[in-house]
Computed example of a mutant assay.
Amino acid sequence: MTTERSGVLEGAIAPAENSKLFGHREAEAFLAQSYKSGKGHHAILVEGPEGIGKATLAFRFANHILNHPEPAEAPDSLGDPDPGSIVTRQLVSGASHNLLHLTRPIDEKTGRAKGAITVDEVRRAGKFFGQTSGSGNWRIVIIDPADDLNRNAANAILKILEEPPRRSLFLVLTHAPGKLLPTIRSRCLPLRLKPLDAGAMRQALALLGFDVTGANAERILAAAGGSVSEALKLINYGGLDIAEAFEEILKGQGPSVRKQMHKLADILSAKDSETIFDFFSSLLTGRVIQSAREAAAAGDIERAERLARLSGIFAERLALSDAYNLDRKQTILSLLDDLKDAS
C-alpha cells in the first residue's frame, strides 16, 4: 500500500532513489545540453501525466548538476546516478543542503498527506536560499507537483520566481499545467513529457519485478495509459477489479446494480483506501471527459457541454469531500448516480 509519509506506491522506487529512467531520452538530452551551455532557464516546468517519470527526471537532473556544478565542465548527457556517490546518498536520504523537495506535508494527527502544499512549506524555500546564499553552490527546488500548491503558496512561489537567487534552479512538476497560475507558467520554460510507450513501460515494470509476459500483462499495459503509477495501482491495489466493477455498474440496470454500487463504495471508503480511491476518482472524471469528447466528435454539442460541466462538478465535489472529510461512501454513491443519469 502507499506509505503516506513517503508518498511511494507499493512496488515503486522513490524518485530520489531511482537510478533508471525510461522513455525520455530527448528530455534528458535537452536538459543536459542546455545546462552545459550555461544558458539554461532558472525554472523548468516539467509537464505530463502522473506516473511517467517527471520526479525521477527532476532528481536525475539535480544529481547531474550537483555532481558537476560548473556547467562548462559537465557531460553533455545525463548518466545513471552513482548510488555510492556522496551527492546521491544525500539526495536519497533527504540530507542534501543544496536541494529542497517541496511536496504536500504530512498531517501529524492523521499521518496522511495534507490536501495541498501550503505557504508554510514555500517559506521553507526562503530559509533554504538564505542558509545557502554564501556557499556558491547550486540550490535546487523541486516542486512536486505544483498542482498541489494552494493559492497563497502559489503566489509565494511566484515572488521567488520573479527574482530568482543566483545559481538557483526550480524544477516545477505538473500533471495539469492549465491549473497553474498563468504567471507561474509564463516564468518557466515548458518541458513536455509524453506517456511511456509499450517498450518503455515494459522496461520500467520489469525493473520493478513485474512479469511483463504474464497473462494480464497486455491488459494492464493497455489500461495503464503509459503511466507506471497507474500500472502499479492496477497490479497491487486491485485497480483492474475496480475498473471492471465500474464498467458493469455503468452498463447495468435494476436492483442488482444498486448492490454493486454499494459494494464498490464500501471498498473505496474502507480504511487505508486512499490510493484506490484516488484511482477511482481519476477513472470517474476521466470517463466523463472521454464521453464529452465523444459527444463533441459526434456533433452533439449540447451533450458535450453538459458532460464537460459535469466533469468540473465532479472534481469540485471530490475536492470538497476530501477537504471536509465528508462521508466518502455517500459521495461515491451520489457521483455514480449522477453519472448513470447523464449516461
Rank of each mutant, 00 (worst) to 15 (best):
G136Y: 04
G23H: 08
P182G: 12
A224R: 13
L45C: 00
L31K: 01
A72V: 10
E230A: 15
A146Q: 03
N98L: 04
I157E: 00
L66Q: 13
I313D: 13
G130F: 11
A72G: 07
G299T: 04
L180P: 02
S19V: 15
I332T: 04
T88F: 14
F129I: 00
L250W: 01
A146F: 04
E4N: 14
P69C: 10
S273R: 12
K259N: 10
K127E: 12
A176H: 14
D327F: 09
A223H: 08
N325S: 13
Q131G: 12
G226P: 03
P145D: 03
A304M: 04
D266G: 01
A200M: 06
I235V: 13
Y324S: 07
E28C: 10
L318P: 01
P75L: 11
G239K: 02
E73G: 06
I313K: 13
I140H: 10
I289L: 12
D272W: 06
T56Q: 06
L149H: 01
T331C: 07
S281H: 04
L9Y: 11
L99G: 02
A29I: 09
N98R: 15
A231K: 08
R303W: 07
D300W: 01
L169D: 01
L310P: 00
V122N: 00
P255H: 03
H24Q: 15
P49W: 02
F246V: 01
F61I: 07
G238V: 10
F128W: 00
A265E: 00
K271M: 09
A27S: 13
L149I: 04
P165L: 05
N150F: 04
D266K: 12
D82K: 11
T132L: 05
N152E: 13
A146Y: 03
P255L: 05
L91T: 08
L336D: 09
E73D: 15
R293I: 12
A308Q: 14
S34P: 00
S343M: 15
R112Q: 11
L193E: 08
L78H: 05
T103A: 09
V228K: 11
A74K: 08
S133P: 03
P81W: 09
G111Y: 03
A16G: 09
A292I: 06
S96C: 02
R328I: 00
D197P: 06
P190W: 11
D147N: 01
E10M: 13
L250N: 01
K109C: 00
G38Q: 03
D147E: 01
L336S: 07
F30K: 12
K259G: 07
S135G: 02
H24E: 05
P177T: 04
